[in-house]
Computed example of a mutant assay.
Amino acid sequence: MLELKTPQEIAAMDVTGTFIAELLDDLAGRARPGVNLLDLELRARTLLAERGAQSCYWDYAPSFGRGPFRNVICLSVNDAVLHGLPHDYVLADGDLLSMDIAVSIDGWVADSARSIIVGTPRAEDRRLIAATEEALAAGIAAALPGNRLGDISAAIGAVAADYGYPVNTEFGGHGLGRTMHEDPHVSNVGRAGRGLKLRQGLTLALEPWFAAGTDKIVYDPDGWTIRSADGSRTAHSEHTIAITDGPALVLTRRERVTAAPR
């Protein structure tokens, strides 16, 4: 069941989205070689507490997880891409770190993810991150009133195909608003002109994520962390958007410098 948001409700989600963008900026600035993932988790908890925000991840217990998630952010390193459980790991020079967080402020949710390189970058990692960022931008550009959900999915998938990266269809974007996950599911590959017609007031989290060498995934023993099945590097970019009467409004907006060209 779809819930279209009023302009006032979208403005409330925008407040949450702005906070998330600032939080990810803060963590990105702290993610250096020698920093423990648990330090980043603690910093995220501190920022949420100072803002009076609630984590959407704490006690999250979907069918694919192992028990309730007892952290406020997902931190995934190198071949890990989704639902990374923060643990005692010290970041090394050249690590590829994906950070994903969903937060509720005054009952309204936003969700965003960002991948960064810790220390010395590798060209192939910069290219992979660039692909997810370009795919996200393409999906946002296709999120126009009157277009179809498949137009967003097709735009994301076309960028992946252009870069030569396979696309997993088990996990993708989703609706959100009062809760972290609402209808509809937004696949990262699809057919243009198909699916739900986009209407003003629809709010979505678009989140292209790619592994360099495979579309298959495996789970860590922790029951949460998802990795590429072949051990290849991964990247993940996500924004929360609102469909308007024109171009989509990006609620988790930030200044972004696109990674190196392909």
Score class of each variant (00 low, 15 high):
T132E: 01
V81N: 06
R122C: 09
P86T: 10
G94I: 04
E124T: 02
R114C: 00
E133M: 13
G107K: 09
S55K: 06
I73G: 09
D125G: 09
N78G: 05
D59P: 12
T132W: 00
S98R: 03
I73Y: 07
L85P: 04
G119T: 00
V90Q: 06
S112K: 04
T132A: 12
T120P: 10
I117N: 12
S104K: 14
S55M: 05
G94V: 03
T120L: 04
S76M: 08
R114V: 05
D59K: 14
D93E: 10
I101E: 04
L75W: 08
S63T: 14
Y60M: 10
G94S: 03
G84D: 04
W58Y: 15
Y89T: 00
A61R: 10
A102I: 00
G84H: 02
S98V: 07
R127M: 12
R66N: 06
L136R: 04
F69M: 07
G67E: 12
D100H: 09
S76V: 02
E133L: 10
D100Y: 04
S112L: 00
R126Q: 10
I101P: 02
D100E: 11
E134P: 04
V72S: 09
E124V: 05
A92G: 12
V90D: 00
V81K: 03
D106F: 14
D59H: 14
A113F: 08
D95P: 08
F64T: 13
C74S: 13
W108I: 13
S115T: 11
Y89F: 05
A130V: 11
G67D: 14
I105V: 06
L85E: 07
R66S: 06
P121R: 08
V109E: 03
I129W: 01
D95R: 04
G119A: 01
I101T: 08
L82C: 07
R127E: 12
A130M: 15
R70M: 13
S63Y: 13
T132L: 08
V81C: 10
